[in-house]
């Protein structure tokens, strides 16, 4: 569905993306995980024709993203990190204008269908500026779905939302996967990547440092982590199973936490840094 070859983007001396090789399969939810500045948004910008790569190529269903942008644009829906809706316009008007950009037939029917799907029907004629953050985010996803895209790009879809709204959006994203849409999402929330993604690519400083299913990535490290606090500094011990975790905990003369390994531990192991740096 999506292939990138040596994809790179430099902003003068800053290397935002460095030699990305990636293959994203049809129908999967693929997550790009990494801290701020890792190259996640740059990757999305290139794949959605908003930025041109400095080096390398990217293909979406055999269409070259740089040389054949128009057919690529017809296949994709984009939900950017920032809420770039027209807040002075109503929800209906926002969707109508977007639908007209794609020359969609039966626009009224499609808008109604989507507003029903996103549970925003009763808000169709309300100005977007009066919507809550969660509603605006939902409308943004609905707008990206207007053209019935085959690939949906979600750049940090739940950033800044409270946990309850975040879970609502997760269920919406899972519904979209059931409809067969390929989803590429970026996130720096571990739970989000683990909950939603079939496969995860971990980016750090513009480079892809790991790529696998969340379970396989976690399994590389073992089963459990013992966290111990020594003189204000947190130490991590990776262990195979619960029994080993208990015996490790007994050797510590401070308070310890025993928990399952997660993707953040994978990231720390690979880079020596935390995801939220």
């Amino acid at each position: 569905m999506i292939i990138t070859q040596d994809l790179s983007k430099h902003y003068r001396e800053v290397v935002a993306l460095d030699g990305l090789y990636l293959e994203i399969h049809p129908g999967e939810i693929f997550g790009l995980l990494g801290p701020n500045g890792a190259g996640k948004t740059t990757t999305i910008k290139i794949l959605t024709t908003l930025a041109r790569p400095t080096r390398g190529r990217a293909f979406l269903q055999d269409y070259d993203v740089v040389r054949q942008p128009l057919p690529v644009k017809r296949l994709i829906g984009v939900c950017p990190q920032e809420i770039n809706l027209d807040k002075e316009l109503t929800a209906y008007e926002n969707l109508w204008i977007y639908g007209r950009l794609y020359r969609l037939p039966d626009l009224h029917k499609r808008i109604k269908e989507l507003l029903d799907f996103g549970d925003l029907s009763d808000r169709a004629s309300h100005l977007v500026k009066n919507f809550s953050g969660g509603m605006q985010r939902r409308l943004l996803i609905l707008r990206a779905l207007m053209s019935r895209p085959q690939v949906l790009f979600l750049d940090e879809p739940t950033v800044g939302l409270d946990p309850q709204v975040r879970r609502q959006l997760w269920s919406l994203i899972q519904q979209l996967k059931m409809e067969g849409i390929t989803i590429v999402l970026t996130t720096h929330y571990i739970e989000e990547a683990e909950m939603l993604c079939d496969r995860v690519g971990i980016l750090n400083r513009g480079r892809l440092i790991a790529l696998d299913t969340p379970a396989a990535l976690v399994a590389r490290l073992g089963g459990y982590v013992v966290e111990a606090m020594h003189n204000g500094k947190r130490e991590y011990h990776l262990v195979k199973d619960k029994a080993e975790a208990y015996s490790c905990a007994q050797t510590e003369n401070c308070e310890v936490i025993i928990r399952k390994v997660n993707l953040e531990d994978v990231f720390i192991q690979l880079t020596g840094e935390r995801l939220s740096r």
């Binding site: 908003l50 017809r74 950017p80 770039n84 950009l101 794609y102």
Partner: peptide, 9 residues
């Protein structure tokens, strides 16, 4: 909002 145009066909 301009980016919406660039990403649309």
């Amino acid at each position: 909002t301009f980016q919406v145009y660039v990403q649309a066909p």
